[in-house]
């Protein structure tokens, strides 16, 4: 199995200010990788870069998976919860790869949608308008849609924020199931306990890489303190980043 993703001296950011700075590394196919780091470390930015919402300021991302086989769950999905649409219809949009803009949804597809809704524990909610769902039920709905997307690379941005233990456990089980099926999962997470328990690999990010490898070797107290220190405030007067100058010096 090859690599799904490769970051080559990647810099992503906003208004020339880097949020991810000179990142290098590869993600092998089938990896279950947690992306950790303090607020403002560039975790969400990295995912946006991978899905192509944010163009790279420098360097590049090599994504070996066709764009349509990448599924992305953003941190605050821009979902209009007041829109009159039912759970079933929202979940069925996960079939987009198969149906596209105009394709019909047949009997087999309806069965798959129902199975996905059942898999996230929302049987009986099919006809509920999404405006009546709780936060946890909404996140389950979005995971059901991810199930249907049948993607090879799945990017999750803080998928468990504000969820209770039961919901989190159910959704973690789904992630582990995906990983067992050979899919690559990148998840931005804040709960270090959760990462240590369920994610074999971790990238600790503080705009630059603090550590990337086995979770227990990366999430050491020393590394976490280092990450916090490196994630200082946005510097309005930062000089242009000179090519070739060592990264560590600028960070210090």
């Amino acid at each position: 199995m090859g690599n799904v993703l490769a970051f080559r001296d990647l810099t992503l950011g906003y208004d020339r200010h880097p949020a991810v700075h000179h990142l290098d590394g590869v993600v092998p196919e089938g990896a279950l990788l947690a992306v950790c780091g303090p607020n403002g470390a560039g975790k969400s930015t990295l995912l946006k870069g991978i899905v192509g919402i944010l163009p790279a300021l420098a360097g590049r991302i090599e994504c070996r998976v066709p764009e349509r086989e990448v599924a992305y769950l953003p941190q605050a999905a821009e979902i209009d919860r007041t829109f009159p649409i039912e759970v079933f219809d929202l979940v069925s949009t996960g079939l987009w790869r198969r149906t596209g803009l105009f394709g019909g949804i047949g009997k087999a597809d309806r069965a798959r949608v129902e199975a996905a809704i059942a898999a996230v524990g929302l049987e009986g909610f099919e006809a509920r308008p999404i405006g009546t769902l709780s936060g946890g039920q909404m996140q389950r709905t979005l995971f059901a849609r991810l199930l249907l997307q049948d993607a090879r690379l799945i990017l999750l941005d803080e998928p468990f924020t504000a969820l209770d233990a039961g919901t989190t456990a159910d959704l973690i089980a789904l992630i582990e199931r995906w990983n067992g099926e050979g899919r690559t999962v990148l998840a931005v997470l804040h709960d270090m306990e959760l990462v240590r328990d369920h994610f074999p690999q971790t990238l600790l990010l503080a705009r630059e890489t603090v550590g990337w490898g086995e979770t227990r070797e990366v999430l050491t107290p020393a590394n976490l303190i280092e990450a916090r220190r490196m994630c200082e405030a946005w510097d309005d007067g930062a000089p242009a980043c000179a090519p070739g100058s060592p990264v560590a010096e600028r960070a210090a």
């Binding site: 349509r68 599924a71 821009e78 979902i79 987009w96």
Partner: peptide, 15 residues
């Protein structure tokens, strides 16, 4: 049209 109203981010990611 409907999907762009409900979840524009998702539509962007698939199409």
């Amino acid at each position: 049209l409907v999907l762009e109203s409900v979840d524009p981010g998702f539509l962007r990611s698939v199409s």
